[in-house]
Design a protein around this nucleic acid. Sequence first.
RNA 1: GGUCCCGUAGUUCAAUGGAUAGAAUAGAAGUUUCCUAAACUUUAGAUACAAGUUCGAUUCUUGUCGGGACUACCA
Length: 591
Amino acid sequence: MSILHILQEKTIEKLGLLYGRSFTENDFQVSQTKPEFEGDYTVVLFSLIKSLQLSPDIIGNQLGETLIEDHSKLFTGFNIIKGFLNLTVANEYWLELLHKNHNDICFGKQPMNGKRVMVEYSSPNTNKPLHLGHLRNNFLGWSVAEILKANGFEVFKSCIVNDRGIHICKSMIAWQLFANGATPQSTHTKGDHFVGEYYVKFNDEYKRQVKELTDKGTVAADAEKNAPIMLSTQQMLQDWEAGEPSVMELWKTMNSWVYEGFDVTYKNIGSDFDKTYYESNTYLLGKKIVEEGLSKNVFVKDADGSVWIDLTNDGLDRKIVQRKDGTSVYITQDIGLAQQKYEEYKIDQSIYVIGDEQNYHMKVLKLIAEKLHLSNAKNIYHLSYGMVELPSGKMKSREGTVVDADDMVDEMIATAKHHTEALGKVKDFTTAELETLYITIGMGAMKFYLLRVDPKKKMIFNPEESIDFHGFTGPFVQYTYARIKSILRRETLIENFSHGTDLLKLEREILVTLEQYPSIIVQAAKELNPSAIANYVFTVAKVFNSFYAEHSIANAETEIKKQLRLQLSMMTSNVLKTGMRLLGTDVPERM
RNA sequence: GGUCCCGUAGUUCAAUGGAUAGAAUAGAAGUUUCCUAAACUUUAGAUACAAGUUCGAUUCUUGUCGGGACUACCA
């Protein structure tokens, strides 16, 4: 338990003894003391003033004195400023923490809690390559899964591949029309990019045909509906659903090209899944749901045969759940899949990492599941994240302003190389080591950049400025780690060395920060928020760097100091390493 | 039109209703006989506007102005 929680509990206990009634954690706040005041942790007394009808000085003095009297090994002093009771935590507490945990790579991990969680993320379409927005999704999903694991959950990572539908047929039609039998192999193009090119070609040709029709006087809406390429795409979709062999053959071939491409990208960015669902297998699941909904009178069938749910009482619209031709729509498939996940994995919670543009859709999804009284309804949670935008606004594939994921990865690795060369560090490494190092740094910079922002908020990426390697960045943390490891390779840390009780201000500051690691991990899981980890890890690195610049470790004043600082360094490096792991990022032993 | 989200230094991001609103970067000025200067130190710079609730509001409420998303028998 963290010192903050201990203080909270002790305060509740002491207040009860002092004032003869029971208190809860809502009666006061405990927080870290601002650096400009003396003390480590602060009890905010304002809300007690009213209920106790006493001045903050009286409450503060009584509480402070009782805490110190009864817990002299925890607290050594206090001061009261306005309504704030600032307590100083005993050096012994910090030193014991260091002694116990400096070499524990599991520091911060919570024990298994028996709960099972599924995290669905990535969820690509098989008609175009991944872009920057997908990267945020992938990094978030992966990191959230790691954070939940660290909190004792059993986690299953899943991915639903949108491998069928009209958008997939578009690239297939365009390939038939324009490719002349070209393949990724024949054009030396990565499979997903190859297919993506035909998706773009479809849109170009479609636009051309629509214009041709409107120029001849056709109304725009009709032109869009009746453009020949659109008609043949719709025909292809029907053929696909009928299982027409030549269409199925083409579909399988083109999807396999995309998967080959995705495999490379996923490997590069470190995404993996315990279970992959394909929409071509799950899109029929909706049928069962529709039958169930009709029998429960949750859904109604219109005269034309289409099936609907009325959500107007919930502040939403009337939503369609099955088309008049009997085919199911996206939302219905989703509910079917949600149920299947639950049955297959017996999960206690089902998390969907999906962009906030689908907030409405996910709201409807959960609402329908609830109305059907599905057993998993209350466990559905939409981890909604903001879009990655350019300074000019939203990325649009049609306008060619999409930042491609593979390009981004290549660029980051190239930038890492450039920086390393500019700093003249190349000579210290073998060629193979350099190759790994560039990937570690480049990917570290990119992942950290996309995860350091609160997931809920949209973020702006400026391709002109690219991603920094200085300041609040992945490489900053990695560099701190590498410097520590450099010292630990050279110096000998003696286990069970009894260090004194003296702590310099900066040594103390590191310990105060390190002590918070376990509660940060808990908080990150509670909020499903990797940025809490990113912010924390950066703070740790920053505090350590200040210390590093000020005091020598290898040439410390005494052997006692040296051993203390080696332990501090060891513990810091462990926290940096495991913390970065929670973000899906490696740290280099040297850089 | 309806539903929802967002306006914080030049820029990109922080801040369970609490102390003088934190960082990073860009700007200015410094630090290398000493463990890696991808670092450290100092400095200047911001809560869109107006009311309200409160001992206390960036945070809660309302209004104004500005920006965005969603609202398909697409996925």
